[in-house]
């Protein structure tokens, strides 16, 4: 289909003999928010690592904008328009909040090394543009007042938001969020749900998210895939997933499902 932005076809990943993900397929239409859920160790983060280039798939194809990206480096894939956040926060903790976003924003910098060394006008203008863009993103995520703090000193919830701001700064078309609501209280995750919708609309994004908080997933996602032992066991609308027998078994065990 012409409007699908990300097409994953039968991606499989072995770690030596261990099959981590098998025959994972996904088609993301533009503007969709899709969810990837499953028990711990099901391979959800491995899927993200395969999509973003941390791992190279053993077999299968990944197409972003009709372009095969399997086996490309992380930074190449980011520059093609797919960015991610990390489950276990990977901020640059000794850099300021603003610098964290700047690092990501500079993927689109428009000055070169010699201009930077000579302090040419193109460098100064480029830096100013980057700072403005980064500040705007921080404002969107409600972090602008913390711009000069070291990111490692931020409260947990703000660090999660900063991860999103940083990923957005790379100017993605597809955004992968790895447990964005982890560690948040119900009120915070409610706010986050709103924020994710807002940024989807504002930045014209397509989003795939991994999440354990079922409120967030059921509220936010248009489609959900359920992964268990590296395989997709169910796929569909939130309502279908909620009542799917196999999903309940995977999460709670067979006995509980039959009870």
């Amino acid at each position: 289909m012409a409007s699908s932005i990300l097409e994953v076809d039968k991606v499989t990943k072995y770690f030596r003999g261990l099959k981590a993900v098998s025959d994972y397929s996904l088609t993301l239409e533009k503007g969709v928010i899709a969810g990837l859920i499953g028990p711990n160790g099901a391979g959800k983060t491995t899927v993200f690592n395969l999509l973003t280039g941390v791992f190279t798939p053993t077999s299968g194809t990944i197409r972003l904008h009709q372009q095969d990206i399997a086996g490309q480096r992380l930074d190449q894939i980011v520059s093609l328009g797919m960015a991610r956040t990390f489950q276990n926060l990977r901020l640059f903790t000794k850099l300021t909040v603003l610098d964290n976003v700047l690092v990501a924003a500079q993927i689109n910098k428009d000055y070169g090394f010699w201009a930077a060394i000579a302090g040419l006008p193109s460098f100064k203008k480029g830096e100013k543009d980057l700072r403005e863009r980064a500040s705007a993103l921080l404002e969107d995520m409600g972090l602008l007042h913390l711009a000069d703090e070291l990111s490692g000193n931020l409260p947990y919830g703000d660090q999660r938001k900063l991860e999103i701001a940083r990923a957005l700064a790379t100017g993605p078309r597809v955004l992968l969020l790895d447990e964005p609501a982890a560690g948040m209280n119900p009120r915070e995750s409610q706010e986050l749900t709103e924020t994710i919708r807002i940024i989807r609309d504002k930045y014209d994004l397509t989003i795939l998210l991994i999440e354990h908080d079922m409120h967030v997933v059921m509220n936010l996602c248009d489609n959900i895939q359920v992964l268990s032992y590296g395989e997709i066991i169910a796929e569909g609308k939130p309502a279908d997933i909620r009542s799917n027998q196999q999903v309940i078994e995977a999460y709670l065990g067979r006995a509980a499902a039959n009870a």
Binding site: D75, A83, R90, L95, A104, Q106, A169
Partner: peptide
């Protein structure tokens, strides 16, 4: 400059730096 920030990002967390587009 962007170059120095990229370097410091690599020092802090090279995987994250790469995932943010730093070569």
């Amino acid at each position: 400059s962007a170059y120095g920030r990229g370097m410091m990002a690599i020092r802090e967390d090279d995987l994250a730096a790469e995932a943010m587009g730093v070569n």
